[in-house]
Simulated scan of single mutants.
Amino acid sequence: MKERGWRAIIFDMDGLVLDSEPTYVKAWQAAADELGFAMPAEFWDGLTGCSGMTVTRRLQEQSGIRFNLEKFQQLSSVYWLAHVQHHGIAVKPGLFAVLEVLAKYRLPFCLATNSALAAAQQCLAWAGLSDVFSYIVAGDMVAAAKPAPDIFLRAAAELAQPVEDCLVLEDSPTGVRAALAAGTPCVFVPSFHPADAWAVEHADFLMEDLHQVADFISARQHHPL
């Protein structure tokens, strides 16, 4: 991969922009526990970044035919909504540092998420970020969600940039797989630790947080190699 500055930045949402992954996991755990299907933490952590269909499939595979998926979805929605309505959704540290760098260098950017568009917009509102992203590419706007490449290919098209000149920021193995499939350079910023070994190996760059990402983008725009 050629080392250079970037022409556009593509953000994932859950776990990268928003510290929302723990809220989903807690809601899923509470719903499953209420239904009598307690599962290990490793199972829930493995669902980070996955589309709703993938979460559903893995739950069914893990729990068997006795698992009441409809009731699970109802309960988890109630638990999650109660939490975010009371507490809001936290923004990941360093996001505003990245946005300042993008404004300085006039780099276009967008949000690319497996969430449905309406859900993404609501989550951004709860986090106080409604006016931050001019472009959002959501899971219900493409034929296939991540780990398929569709979302990132659509995002690059919306930004009017070649996909190889966009930099994807992701926190999950699912997102890293999608970036690889799209041919898009990817920074992996793990939202859970220990970080997924496959994503660490296959992402183009590994960074601790968005503050480090901000410094990285700024340095590349100053000194593209």
Rank of each mutant, 00 (worst) to 15 (best):
L16V: 10
F152T: 07
P190A: 09
L99F: 04
A116L: 02
A182K: 00
F192G: 06
A31R: 03
D171G: 15
F216S: 11
T48F: 05
P194R: 06
L129E: 14
W80G: 03
V91C: 06
P147I: 03
R220M: 14
E34I: 02
D19P: 00
A103N: 15
A197R: 11
R154A: 15
A155T: 03
P185E: 01
A182T: 05
F96Y: 12
G94W: 02
A31Y: 00
E201Q: 15
G15M: 04
G52R: 02
A31H: 01
H211Q: 07
V163H: 09
R58F: 13
V142R: 03
A125S: 13
E170Y: 10
V25I: 15
Q85T: 05
A138R: 06
L169D: 11
W6Y: 15
V55E: 06
A203Q: 08
V142E: 09
V84I: 13
A156P: 13
F133Q: 08
S115A: 14
W6M: 01
N68F: 07
I9P: 15
P108L: 00
I136Q: 07
W28S: 08
L210T: 08
D171S: 14
G5Q: 08
S115F: 00
D165R: 02
E70K: 03
V213N: 12
L225Q: 14
P22Q: 07
D14F: 00
A181F: 01
P194C: 00
V78P: 00
L153I: 03
P93C: 02
A179S: 13
P22S: 01
L117Y: 12
F96N: 15
Q29H: 05
A181T: 04
E170C: 09
V17Q: 06
V168H: 11
L75I: 06
A119L: 03
A155D: 11
L180G: 12
F216Y: 14
Y105V: 06
A32Q: 02
L206N: 15
A155G: 12
F133A: 02
H222V: 05
H211L: 05
E21T: 02
P147L: 06
V132Q: 15
A148W: 06
E201Y: 05
R7T: 03
W126M: 09
V189Q: 07
H193L: 14
F67D: 06
S115Q: 07
